[in-house]
Write a protein that binds this DNA or RNA. Structure first.
Lengths: 231, 231
DNA sequence: GGATGTGAAGTAGTTCACAGCC
DNA sequence: GGCTGTGAACTACTTCACATCC
């Protein structure tokens, strides 16, 4: 009966969000010619405790060496593997306004196996333009095959776009519109909402305290440091 | 001794992140002329359970009516108050590249009391341009007074910009650069990292399952629905 | 010695289930 | 009857503390 359990255990959501940060750190270390790094150092640079780093990395298998830390090359390879950086993904982007354009032209957005497959927009003035090496197509055209859809349209249009993407078999959506989407089970949606981030920051300003440590990253939009250090 | 404890209890971080979503929903309801709403309806539109909604709102004081739900006007007012929407905030933006421009021109970014105070950039070709009604200043100029700083510069420059902002007494930072920042205790940093969101999505695609419910929002960059419903 | 990996404890957040009130 | 508000149970994540191995 017992399934072989190929996947370690499946990583927790917070862990998954931290892996890209660790990897960025490890790559920086590597560029500077370092060959090994320990959980303490990673933690400092990532803004989390060394214990958290160790737990996260232990989830990828036993890849450290007691007494000396982690080998930079091994870490980079294993994290990349876990995140699927070896594979390649087709990304379609819908809504080529200011934000959409900024994203496709950004050097840090479409990385790690993500490739731009096509751009779509509803505005006839934008359709036909060439942006980032792609001619913008009309949203009415049939959709190309892709794994991830990025939604950068106004909130009123977001649900219709999501429906269209799902119908075209795109089951992973990254939504920049300030609008909650309803999608069928089996489709993942992630939200990036700038104004919510600002509002959280303002809440903490108003209320004095907050998770406003002297700090670093927690994960994504989340917050600064972990809990305030007592000392 | 006992401090009067004016604040209810201080809201949890996830709750704070959900409040702006609730408020958006309530405003939509209000625009459509509805006068009351219940936790079930809010939950459906926000992608969380009714219980979570009730707990979140209970943190703002007892503002519902048993048997009939919440009054739209009351809710909107109380959430706005909790988030500090009555006050006004000066926002400085540093790094007026594609992304920075997209943000300041976006109708959904600087809302709810946030006002643009000044724009800064290091590039002489950008300094002096007028964008969104502001002439871009040089990063070498003295910084205006502000409550929130938005960082949209390349990752290598992010830490220096953060230091400059902190030195200018800006203690709430929203960082769009893929770079963890070190700031003194008492300064809040929130991170928005697009590529991490994409990578999380890709992880889940590779690993089949994930928190990929048929769903709605969880919070920000987080994920779709809560845990998979068994049924 | 020094850093990993991990049971055990602690903390935070969500969900259940129901008492309380309209 | 219906829906809020909340103690109690549960689940998830983090942190502590230490055995383990280089």
């Amino acid at each position: 009966m017992a399934t072989p359990r190929l996947r370690p255990h499946r990583l927790s959501e917070p862990t998954i969000a931290r892996l890209p940060v660790y990897q960025r750190i490890v790559e920086g270390w590597q560029r500077r010619g370092e060959t090994s790094i320990d959980s303490q150092q990673i933690g400092e640079l990532a803004g989390v405790t060394a214990t958290t780093v160790r737990r996260d990395l232990a989830g990828l298998g036993s890849l450290g060496t007691r007494g000396s830390g982690y080998e930079v090359d091994v870490l980079k390879a294993r994290i990349g593997e876990a995140l699927g950086h070896d594979r390649s993904y087709q990304v379609v982007m819908v809504g080529i306004g200011n934000l959409g354009r900024a994203l496709v032209n950004s050097s840090s957005f479409l990385i790690r196996g993500a490739h731009l497959a096509a751009l779509y927009d509803a505005d006839p003035a934008i359709v036909g333009q060439e942006i980032a090496g792609h001619v913008v197509r009309s949203i009415d055209e049939e959709m190309v095959e892709a794994t991830v859809g990025v939604i950068c349209v106004p909130p009123e249009a977001a649900q219709a776009v999501a429906d269209k993407l799902v119908a075209a078999n795109v089951h992973a959506l990254l939504n920049f519109a300030p609008q909650v989407l309803t999608v069928p089970l089996g489709t993942a949606v992630h939200y990036v909402d700038f104004s919510i981030e600002l509002q959280i920051l303002m809440y903490h300003l108003n209320n004095g305290t907050g998770p406003l440590g002297g700090g670093l990253l927690h994960s994504l939009g989340i917050s600064a440091t972990g809990p305030l250090r007592p000392s």
